[in-house]
Design a protein around this nucleic acid. Structure first.
Lengths: 158, 158
DNA sequence: AGTGATATGTTATATTATTACATCTATGGA
DNA sequence: TCCATAGATGTAATAATATAACATATCACT
């Protein structure tokens, strides 16, 4: 689970990334789906930083290794990774981040710094509870929640 | 303020819309900005239903009245209307809805029915409080919140 | 090895949004 | 009233994001 320390610029990102990738293998195994080499590589590329990445940015990177890659190559990998819960789309940016807590069931909000572009997924269960209650009072049946906060992170706010 | 009754298919939409348009005039006057005829017409088109509308859908409608209209015509109007708070973008749909409570300061969540495509903006102040508290604990300075729930509305869930 | 399901390759195109620059219009001050 | 100018609109081109359709390849199981 992401905690307050991981939002610090100082956190050990190598560990952070390694953990995400190991979790990915585990999650795919459990679900009986295939983390093929393309999919794995796209996930790695996303996870190299906490910055949200656009599909075409990923394509540019991936093309360095496979010049014949096309947009659909990336979108297919992203669709898979999102289905499995290894990647999330940030709707307000049309961009993607790696999920650092893919093993656990999670109810998260995404905090996006408009200065450094880092995006952090933070547990927000109580916010979900709140929204579920509100849904109930409207007799609305929620299926997918999007909670995104744009602003300035602790490293960029001053 | 939108309340539980306005999510019913039965609500009187003519009133609903008229109210939104009158509020728009007021809001623009107060802010000293110009609700020109293009802008007003685009707002009217958005407000004719509670369904989220894409920019190109609006363009098609608007072209019936002004065949020379271009995408940028619509996007400029939408940008203005969003700045003033008369329209909101639904990020998860790349679509727009009219704001029915533009006079009041508001902290809302958007409930989107994936069946009938209606989208309702509902007061969610307590959710905002919750997220502000969470932000504080992360020393994150929030500037814009996006809260969207996709699911099934009371009219479509059975 | 054969079969069916899943994944990938390839081409084309759809959808959403912005840039750049020209022209027009509203508004306030001389 | 006329001018200056800021804001609004016109017009063309293009950027950025995403999907469709169909062919081929690969995996996993028998």
């Amino acid at each position: 689970m992401l905690d307050k320390t991981s939002i610090q610029s100082s956190h050990n990102h190598k560990n952070c990334m390694q953990h995400a990738l190991q979790a990915a293998e585990k999650v795919c195994k459990n679900k009986g789906v295939r983390l093929t080499s393309i999919r794995k590589r796209i996930l790695e590329l996303i996870c190299t930083s906490h910055k949200a990445m656009g599909a075409y940015g990923l394509l540019d990177l991936y093309k360095q290794e496979d010049p014949k890659a096309k947009p659909v190559t990336i979108y297919r990998a992203l669709d898979f990774l999102m289905d499995v819960g290894l990647v999330h789309k940030i709707e307000s940016l049309n961009a993607f981040i790696g999920c650092l807590q893919s093993e656990k069931q999670h109810q998260t909000a995404i905090f996006i710094c408009d200065n450094c572009k880092n995006a952090y997924e933070i547990d927000a269960s109580s916010v979900y509870e709140n929204l579920f209650t509100l849904s109930q009072s409207l007799q609305f049946k929620p299926q997918k929640l999007t909670i995104e906060l744009r602003g300035l992170c602790v490293n960029c706010r001053y």
